[in-house]
Structures are given as structure tokens and as C-alpha cells.
């Protein structure tokens, strides 16, 4: 890929990533927020991480298909319990990697 084309790509990606991150901060921090909106936004984090993790854990392959009992999803059970109990992000990442590595090696 040409150098100038790559720079254009990076600039374009940067712009379309930045604007959605900035826009709500700019507008929603100025005026008072409706109660229903605040309550709705309160549920958004849980929804987003649910929406991010399920397809990651329960689909596989090319073409994509469902698989509820693959290494990824099985390792997720102890990893999630650990995360829930300890509330430790660093520990969870390390444990998850370790379990996944061990599961692929020994199972």
C-alpha cells in the first residue's frame, strides 16, 4: 500500500472513531438529562458487554457457526466466576490466558 494512502486511511479511521466518542460528551454534559434517558444509559454498559462477549464466546469458524461448548466458552465459566468474586481486571486477564493455554494444551 502506498504511503500517502496509508496516511489517508489512518486519518480517516481516526476521525470516524473520534467523532462518535466526542459528540455525546459535548451535548449531554451541557443540558439537564431526562430521568428516563439517565436510567436507560445506566443499563447500557451491561448491555454492551453482553453484546460484545456472547458472539465472541459462542461462535466459531469460517463460515461462522454456533458452538456453545468450545474451549473459549468453557474457559469463560471459571474466568467469569473469578472476575465476579475478585473484581480484579488484571488477575482475570492473566487467569483467563493461563486457563485457555492449559485447556488447549492438555484437553
Amino acid at each position: 500500500m502506498l504511503k500517502s494512502e496509508y496516511l489517508l486511511l489512518v486519518a480517516g479511521m481516526g476521525l470516524v472513531t473520534y467523532i462518535p466518542r466526542w459528540f455525546p460528551l459535548f451535548f449531554l454534559t451541557r443540558r439537564p438529562m431526562a430521568l428516563w434517558l439517565a436510567e436507560w444509559l445506566d443499563l447500557i454498559p451491561a448491555a454492551i458487554f453482553g453484546a460484545l462477549i456472547f458472539p465472541d464466546l459462542f461462535t466459531t469458524g469460517e463460515p461462522l457457526h454456533l458452538d456453545f461448548f468450545q474451549t473459549k466458552s468453557l474457559v469463560a465459566i471459571p474466568t467469569f466466576i473469578f472476575a465476579w468474586r475478585t473484581q480484579s481486571l488484571g488477575g482475570t486477564v492473566i487467569l483467563g490466558m493461563l486457563l485457555y493455554w492449559a485447556a488447549n494444551k492438555f484437553l
Binding site: F49, L52, D56, T79, Q87, L89, V93, G96
Partner: peptide, 10 residues
């Protein structure tokens, strides 16, 4: 994946 799992737990 582990990172997201923990972020979900949070």
C-alpha cells in the same frame, strides 16, 4: 475475551 468477561462482571 478475558478482559471483556471481567468488564461484564463489573
Amino acid at each position: 475475551s478475558a478482559l471483556f468477561l471481567c468488564l461484564l462482571a463489573f
